[in-house]
């Protein structure tokens, strides 16, 4: 049976938080300082809390007996709708912060818009997660400024990470077919309406951090339609290992 657009839209919201949450979980115990380690792990936990809400709801919408765990563990990479930006690796701390910042600004704006969804459950999840996303964007913006306006070395690393990752943001600002239909139906957000605020906010923080705004063109990316980089397969291999090895095992 063909999955409904609502179902796929819920997955696309959840997949972003799941993949970023997983990337952050890889840093647990490996953060550059104890405080940043705890912070990144906390953010990961918030994201997984949000994912559970989305996937529990998706399971209800699908109504074929699947659970939140099936949705997380039994899909292949082609059935994931997350942004390419979020599967990029933890190259160094500057990359972790740049990826987080470029998503957090979008995440907050998108959740703000989603609170007005005609779908009561999506709106409730957005109200709840927005409070947490507000703390996340404070954290990542603060670090962009500290590293950008820091030492020569920290500035060079932060600029390098922004130069590399900024071109992926084109994907966040261009609605996928799933998002277009979701907006038309009233339960999704209008990506075009978020675009200007996103660009302005990102540029404002980068300017405050004394970083140069990249002028390179946006990169071709279709993660939201299920076309991913090789990185996602490695993430899923790790994430889904137990269920793939012992199908339907219970903890």
């Amino acid at each position: 049976m063909h999955d409904s657009n609502l179902y796929r839209y819920i997955l696309s919201l959840g997949d972003n938080s799941m993949i970023l949450g997983h990337r952050l979980s890889e840093l647990c115990g490996h953060g550059p300082t104890l405080e940043t380690d705890i912070a990144l792990t906390n953010i990961s936990l918030d994201l997984f809390g949000e994912v559970r809400n989305y996937f529990q709801y998706a399971a209800k919408v699908k109504a074929d007996g699947s659970t939140e765990d099936d949705i997380a563990h039994q899909r292949g990479s082609r059935a994931f709708y997350n942004l390419i930006l979020l599967e990029q690796p933890n190259t160094n701390f500057a990359y972790v912060i740049a990826r987080q910042f470029l998503f957090d600004v979008f995440h907050k704006l998108n959740l703000q818009a989603l609170t007005k969804s005609t779908d009561k459950q999506l709106s409730a999840i957005a109200v709840k997660s927005l409070k947490e996303a507000t703390y996340h964007v404070r954290f990542s913006s603060d670090w962009v400024k500290r590293l950008g306006d820091g030492t020569e070395e920290s500035r060079a690393k932060m600029q390098g990470a922004i130069d590399d990752l900024y071109p992926f943001t084109g994907e966040l600002l261009r609605p996928s077919k799933i998002e277009e239909e979701a907006y038309k139906e009233g339960y999704g957000t209008d990506i075009f309406a978020i675009k200007d605020s996103y660009v302005q906010e990102v540029q404002r923080i980068l300017a405050e951090a004394k970083l140069t705004i990249p002028t390179s063109p946006y990169r071709f990316a279709k993660g939201k339609e299920g076309f991913h980089t090789e990185y996602l397969d490695y993430i899923l291999q790790d994430f889904q290992y137990m269920q793939k090895t012992y199908p339907n095992m219970q903890w």
Binding site: E35, I38, N42, Y135, F139
Partner: peptide
């Protein structure tokens, strides 16, 4: 740190 020992706390 804005993030403490649990999700609800800052240090």
């Amino acid at each position: 740190s804005q993030f403490g020992s649990t999700a609800c706390k800052a240090l």
